[in-house]
Design a protein around this nucleic acid. Structure first.
Length: 270
DNA sequence: CTTTGCACCTGTTGGC
DNA sequence: TGCCAACAGGTGCAAA
């Protein structure tokens, strides 16, 4: 599943192919994604050049001339460059076709992804307006995390998943970062000390950066793009229930937290 | 306000 | 071997 490092990797990978290119047409074979793909996209985008590809949380932003395409890969989405006349395969829902005969193609079997169009500054779009700081930027500091966790009784894992607290941290990296910081996912957020908050912020950053360097974690659907799952080999707790902790050999515990799984080492994490 | 739970979707997995 | 239910996930939203 594409998490922040995969989205960032995708942004970097497609940018050289789309920035400066002029859109010829937009083909929507299946508009029923997370939200219906707006007809305005196919109406407005042709004729415009793509100015930039950026990322906010797990949203990819294709800045055009009169507006911005907002893309989300959801659970199973994958973007790749294709020849425009390359026959689409199953689940290839949207093509943004360029005037040089190439196309940016979205495949998303589970259709949790999104392709939207806004003519307003993207940061003001309802989906982006309430997002918290980027985890890799300075605003996400130990002091910040300490402050926003005060008085909160929710499990710290759930706060890390809350995009209003920090944008774009998914379940894999939340669990991995908590292991790195030695904090159990179940710990009430308000019980973190200042030092622990600082440690957790550093662990979130380190985990994301490691994955970025590895080119993004690749699992299941996402692995279909052929990238090796290096980072998967290094996962400390995610999907390792009952396997020995890589540090102390204690079996990793699996616990349902809300309706998401949480994994931790009861010895290494307190 | 905070917290919880659900909906959305389909390929994969595990149990029988 | 086949069948079917459970599961995975992000995230917006409704409900408590």
């Amino acid at each position: 599943m594409p998490e922040l490092p995969e989205v960032e990797t995708t942004a970097r990978a497609i940018a050289p192919h789309v920035v400066g290119r002029r859109v010829a047409r937009v083909t929507v074979r299946e508009p029923r994604l997370r939200w219906r793909v707006p007809p305005a996209l196919a109406r407005a985008l042709p004729g415009q050049r793509v100015r930039a590809v950026t990322r906010r949380a797990k949203y990819l932003l294709l800045a055009a001339q009169t507006g911005t395409v907002i893309l989300h890969l959801g659970m199973s989405g994958r973007l790749r460059m294709a020849a425009a006349d390359d026959p689409p395969q199953k689940h290839d829902h949207v093509d943004i076709v360029f005037d040089n005969g190439t196309a940016l193609r979205l495949r998303d079997p589970r259709r949790f992804g999104a392709v939207l169009w806004t003519t307003r500054p993207p940061a003001e779009h309802p989906l982006l307006a309430a997002l918290g700081p980027e985890p890799l930027e300075a605003a996400f500091s130990g002091e910040y995390l300490y402050r926003v966790t005060r008085g909160r009784r929710r499990a710290i894992r759930d706060l890390l998943l809350d995009a209003r607290v920090v944008a774009g941290v998914g379940n894999i990296y939340a669990n991995e970062a908590l292991f790195g910081a030695g904090i159990r996912p179940t710990r009430p957020a308000g019980r973190l000390s200042r030092a622990e908050a600082a440690r957790l912020v550093r662990a979130v950053r380190a985990t994301l950066n490691r994955a970025l360097r590895a080119g993004g974690t690749t699992f299941r659907d996402f692995a279909a793009n052929g990238e090796p799952g290096w980072f998967q080999l290094a996962l400390k707790v995610y999907d390792r229930a009952r396997l020995p902790c890589r540090t102390c050999r204690t079996p990793i515990r699996l616990q349902r937290l809300g309706n998401r799984s949480a994994w931790y080492c009861a010895a290494c994490q307190r």
